[in-house]
Write a protein that binds this DNA or RNA. Structure first.
Lengths: 342, 342
DNA sequence: GTGAAAGCGCTAACAT
DNA sequence: ATGTTAGCGCTTTCAC
């Protein structure tokens, strides 16, 4: 694009050496130069409309002040708040977030990772990935600075920040139990994700703790369609007397809504449904969704904080932060009712 | 971060000059070099795990292969699809999108714009802004390449891509008219935005065309709260016999839902509500929302296409693309019914 | 307190 | 077909 004005131009106008202009404009080095000179340089810079060239600076300083943020898909409503959280922490500190979407594809993720490396990002915030996260494993080996958010990978010692999912699921099961539900179905997330695993085992634990009969049905992805077809299969079998569905996330719960509706079942009249995440607009659904609020914005903030801490210190810390979650009771959960299935 | 391997390292291993490595690896210049050499260089590069340094390359070539994307707020659900659309066009062409959020604040927008300029973006896609868009006006003066999406600015000759909003509003009013609505309220968007203006005047035109009585109530922002409080005011007045609300977007319509519910009114039984945009999950609301589908993803694609075209040609074209929209009838619009308001 | 000079890693004339 | 050279715009050590 345009803007051809360089340090040298400013230096010429101010009648000083380019090096001096650099120092005068820097902030960190501003005190190394005569106050009067600083003013003169500033005036010249403003007059010319000087803007530093971030690529030249970055090349010289080996730092881009940019953080690579890798998410599966911005269209999944939990990610925008997370990205905004990240940005809200980075921006005041002079960093920017560069966000890329993998669509859950490992190949794409690898390519995007490389491309962010080429852009010389100063670190990564990674919200994708399986428990067996090959990319992160060798990112670690390469000495890359990163923090994982919402997901964890086994045996990869990056710091991570997640919600206290197990706690959330326990609260859900307790809530359902109080409403009299004794047979509960868990629409589990897809295999190979830490979120799926943690929520599922918390579900099992909570059920045996409250004495409820828990059944787990896995889904193929965290999506409306996957939730719908998984529940369709169960409902079509026509057996089982469960009265409540605990979905591993809100999208799955929405899929459950659809399936129930298709089968002429009322929620929460016939079957209660509880989601997970409290995604935006969850309270506006039909029925308003009972779910667990995950602090996505705060997760982003915390991840950014952890990463900048690493960047400042130059070393990885491998801490793992677990943020509190909260059950939000709305209209999709109600008293258990005996029900006959065709 | 790590990765200290440069062209020179590869050159040494391959036993050739750095310049040759550059050519061998480039694609555009690959044919200028002996095929055997190319292979040797490639092997050396792979063996060392060489990655080009984008800052060094960009500094030299004066191009960052990056597009700055300025949106108000990624948490507004119309933007993620737009961003994905942009990215889907850019990525295969070697470009990346750098997205920033202004939160509707002019000062933030200016700062972010400068920061993207410093990063040497090759062009802008701008989804923010008033009809009186000061920033864009002087961006134009600076010779910056940009396209506006979803919004237009008066007297600023950047290309723009929008939905055919006027057409959409006409279809809404016709739909309502067929359902027997004769008195219709328009919850207009905030003043100073092209979307607000276009939808409002289309509403007026459509009403007089169908002979319906149209009343316009402006809102303070495109948000749920603004929609709710604007309708609250009308409903609290207790006069007026409108039977339908045409909201300038889905968020406003959702606010209308809330207001209606607070006033003990049923939608669509007492009052029909129609939104605009067909944001994600609009069909899952209570009631499922009748709205106009704006092709946000496609708008992103088109904007990216237009911008890359400008970049390739080096000149601005000032075309204005209007993409088709479609009325999506769901459950929030129904037959007009006589109604008594307290 | 400021000037001089080198160099970050790359590409693109220009030579050969 | 490949080597040489210069330089993109900046920061930073080293002089003075």
């Amino acid at each position: 694009m345009s803007n051809r004005i360089t340090l040298a131009d400013v230096a010429k106008l101010a009648g000083v050496h380019p090096g001096t202009v650099s120092r005068a404009l820097s902030g960190k080095t501003e005190n190394q130069v005569n106050a009067a000179t600083v003013r003169r340089v500033r005036r010249a810079a403003k007059q010319l409309g000087y803007m530093p060239n971030a690529m030249a600076r970055g090349l010289r300083t080996r730092s881009s002040m940019t953080i690579g943020v890798i998410v599966p898909d911005l269209m999944n409503p939990i990610f925008p708040p997370m990205v905004r959280g990240i940005d809200s922490y980075l921006a005041p500190r002079g960093f920017s977030a560069f966000v890329v979407n993998t669509d859950g594809k490992d190949a794409a993720e690898r390519t995007l990772f490389e491309s962010l490396m080429e852009r010389q990002v100063d670190g990564f915030i990674v919200a994708t990935g399986h428990t067996d996260h090959v990319l992160m494993a060798d990112a670690l080996a390469r000495g890359v600075l990163a923090v994982m958010v919402n997901r964890e990978a086994h045996g990869v010692s990056f710091p991570s920040v997640t919600g206290d999912d197990a706690r959330g699921i326990h609260e859900v099961v307790a809530h359902l139990s109080e409403l009299g539900h004794r047979r509960i179905l868990h629409l589990a997330g897809p295999r190979g994700f830490s979120t799926s695993e943690i929520r599922e085992s918390a579900f099992q634990a909570a059920c045996s703790q409250t004495g409820a009969a828990g059944r787990v049905v896995p889904t193929s992805s965290y999506s409306i369609d996957a939730g719908q077809s998984a529940l369709d299969v169960v409902l079509d079998q026509g057996v089982d007397g469960f009265t409540a569905v605990v979905a591993a996330n809100d999208l799955l719960a929405l899929g459950a809504y659809h399936s129930l509706r298709m089968h002429g079942l009322d929620c929460p009249g016939d079957i209660s449904v509880v989601g997970f995440n409290d995604m935006p607009f969850a309270g506006d659904f039909l029925p308003p969704m009972t779910t667990v609020r995950s602090p996505h914005f705060e997760m982003g903030v915390e991840a950014a904080r952890l990463l900048l801490e690493q960047i400042a210190s130059g070393q990885s810390s491998a801490v793992s932060v677990k943020l509190p979650v909260a059950l939000v009771v709305r209209g999709s959960s109600g008293p258990a009712r005996r029900r006959a299935i065709s």
